[in-house]
Amino acid sequence: MTYLGTALAVLGAALAAILSGMGSAKGVGLVGEAAAGVVSEDPSKFGKVLILEILPGTQGLYGFLTAFLLLARIGLLNGEIATNPLTVSRGLMLLAACLPIATVGYFSAIAQGRAAASGVGVVAKKADQSGKAITMAALVETYAVLTLLVSLLSIMSIVNYTA
């Protein structure tokens, strides 16, 4: 039971990385399919569709960032955790702190993938309107960024918290 708190915190880090990574993979994959459809007809549009394809990939990065920060702050990366394990309550709090980016990251990446894939259709027909397509897809990012902030701030506060 000594390491249950630590295990819960690591579970949170894993969920943040796995779920947001899965969402990004789905989103980027979807836009990639649409982008391939356009590039197969007009290779000159590769640059414009590439920007759209990158957009849903950010949630995966946010999940990775959250997981890395958590693992570093609890001392798992430098081995300090062995001498100073987390309590169960703190582990649970860290797990909860990871959930915003894990869940919203997953769903927003898929939603952004759909929006960006639709934008690829806009680029296919009206390349000069690519800015609008990128803006529409980028707006979905807002909610991933907000939850990233919530998760990061929570992790930092919980680790620094002394009862």
Binding site: L30, V31, E33, A34, A35, A36, G37, V38, S40, E41, D42, K45, R114, A117, V120, G121, A124, K125
Partner: peptide, 16 residues
């Protein structure tokens, strides 16, 4: 419906 992503984009390019 998302399985048509490639096809729809290809069609959009051809609609021109």
């Amino acid at each position: 419906d998302t399985d048509y992503a490639f096809g729809v984009a290809k069609i959009r390019a051809n609609e021109l």
